[in-house]
Design a protein around this nucleic acid. Sequence first.
DNA 1: AGCGGTCAAGTTGAT
DNA 2: ATCAACTTGACCGCT
Length: 300
Amino acid sequence: MIRLGLCCIFRNAPIKFRRTTARYLLSISKAKREEHLATICMHNADALYRALQFCGANGIGAFRINSQILPVKTHPEAGYDLGKLPGGDRIIARFKQCGAFAREKGLRTTFHPDQFLVLSSTDADVVKRSIADLEYHAMVAGWVTADVINIHGGGAYGDKKSALGRLAGVIRGLDPEIGSRLTLENDDRVYTPADLLPVSMETGVPLVYDVHHHRCLPDGSSAEQTTEAALATWNREPLFHLSSPLNGWEKGPCRPHHDFIDPKDFPDCWKDLDLTVEVEAKAKELAVLRLKNALTRDSG
DNA sequence: AGCGGTCAAGTTGAT
DNA sequence: ATCAACTTGACCGCT
């Protein structure tokens, strides 16, 4: 069975996540700051619960949780401890209710921290802050029972081989709360599946195969070959990424995402797998539901 | 109420 | 040397 995943936000459904900025938080009093953060974090825990309800009610099997679900959480000056905010215990309890709901409905939850998290960096401080961010993600993942924290390989610094060596070294030293959830994804500028598969096999961190990125940044392997190799890295239900290019494959830059998925971009070799496919499309839940219909018609 | 400037962070590659 | 592009709006503050 294919399980389709929705990424972070909704196009039409009235479910919104709130955020704030470090600059604003640091411009107000400590009491006001904690009140503001508590309001936003509780709002986001509630919104997550409603997002999962929407997914459960609409046959969407997975939901990617935005990294800003606890905004500014690990900022050096504006960061905070959720449990110490006003009503912090209730906020944590609400996240745990999200986890209970997800388990009850068989929904999968995932994280995809943004590009500032770089484990291959030559700068020890960047790596340290990245690990702090992973700790935050792992903490929330524990509450909501997310089994994937997916990152890219980061920069190459003119020497891919050394960078991948640093990446593998950092991964090996991670706390199991992080390491047991961590995954690596091929990107569209630096690291191909062929670059990352050896790191996956060496560290036990699964490969999230993004077939769109692979078409933008090929490595000589076919989608079939890479699918097979990526599947072998998973010790749980595999998770892959799918999107369609805004301007077609023929002309212009292929990176920007389309509103919807062209069913022709769904690889045939994925169709009979037990697999989560996260749908990276700007029309969000509308695109997931449309693809779901197309796949159902296709097989039935 | 509406609009515009702004938002923590890293890296690459275009200018 | 500088800066947009990644994700992509949503926020606050001013009118």
